Amino acid sequence: MTALQRVSLPGSEDERREEWTLVLEEMEGEVIDAERSIRGNRAEEIAAWGRRMEDWVPPSALGPLPMDLRERAARLLQHQLAVAEELVERITQSQRQRDLAARMAYRPRPVAAFVDRAL
């Protein structure tokens, strides 16, 4: 087979594998970015991840996931779920801390009163 014969045609399995590889790499990058936010204790970034409401929808032109990428995709899914769980935990923890701080900041503080009984 010559090099020209091996060139992928549009929509070929090789092209689909390449496109899926790029999509998986992008998704892996997002998971790593979310982990960095968690590890860096950057509250605003963590909250921003929590506000992301859209579900990922694969581009319609990708076609089915190639068999040889399914294990990688499954590992990525497990990684995403673990990071999502940690994000939820951190967001909940952060909200509790904010609520506590708000209650403490606005509560009237007792004023010390000293009376000299020797008078």
Rank of each mutant, 00 (worst) to 15 (best):
D33Q: 13
E54P: 03
P64R: 01
S94R: 11
D14K: 08
L9A: 15
E44T: 14
V83F: 06
L22M: 07
W56A: 03
D116Y: 12
Q78G: 13
S12R: 08
A47T: 10
E86W: 09
D14A: 15
D55I: 09
I91P: 02
D14W: 06
W20E: 04
W20P: 07
E15P: 07
R42I: 11
A102Y: 06
R72L: 09
E19H: 14
H79C: 03
D68H: 12
A3L: 10
E13Y: 03
I38T: 06
L65R: 04
R98A: 12
H79F: 11
F114C: 00
V7H: 09
R109P: 00
P59M: 01
G63V: 10
Y106R: 11
A84Q: 14
E35C: 06
R72G: 04
I91A: 04
V7Q: 14
G29D: 03
H79S: 15
I46T: 13
A113H: 13
A101S: 05
D55Y: 08
V7A: 12
V115S: 02
R6D: 04
Q93P: 00
A61Q: 14
L69P: 10
P10G: 00
F114T: 13
P110W: 00
V23G: 00
G11Y: 04
Q95L: 11
E54L: 11
I38N: 07
E54V: 10
L65M: 14
P58Y: 03
D99L: 04
V115M: 05
R109W: 01
P64M: 01
M1S: 14
D116V: 08
E18C: 02
L77H: 14
S12Q: 04
E44C: 02
D55N: 14
P58N: 05
E86V: 05
A112L: 09
T2C: 10
R96T: 06
D68R: 07
P110D: 07
L119C: 01
E15K: 05
Q95E: 13
D68C: 09
E15V: 02
L24N: 03
L77V: 05
L87C: 06
L65D: 09
E44G: 04
I46K: 08
I91G: 04
P59T: 02
A73H: 13
G40Y: 05
L62C: 04
E71N: 09
E35F: 02
V31T: 13
P59C: 01
L87A: 09
E15N: 03
T21P: 02
N41A: 14
E86H: 09
A34T: 00
W20C: 00
L81G: 00
A112H: 04
P64H: 05
S94D: 10
D33M: 09
L24F: 07
R17I: 00
W20D: 03
M104D: 09
E86M: 08
R96Y: 01
A43K: 12
E89K: 14
Y106N: 14
L62F: 11
L81Y: 06
R51K: 15
E54Q: 15
D99C: 00
P59L: 01
Q80P: 01
V57Q: 10
L4N: 05
L69E: 06
S12A: 08
E26Q: 11
E44L: 11
R16P: 04
E89H: 11
A34Y: 06
I46A: 04
E71S: 14
R70G: 02
R117S: 01
E71Y: 10
R52Y: 12
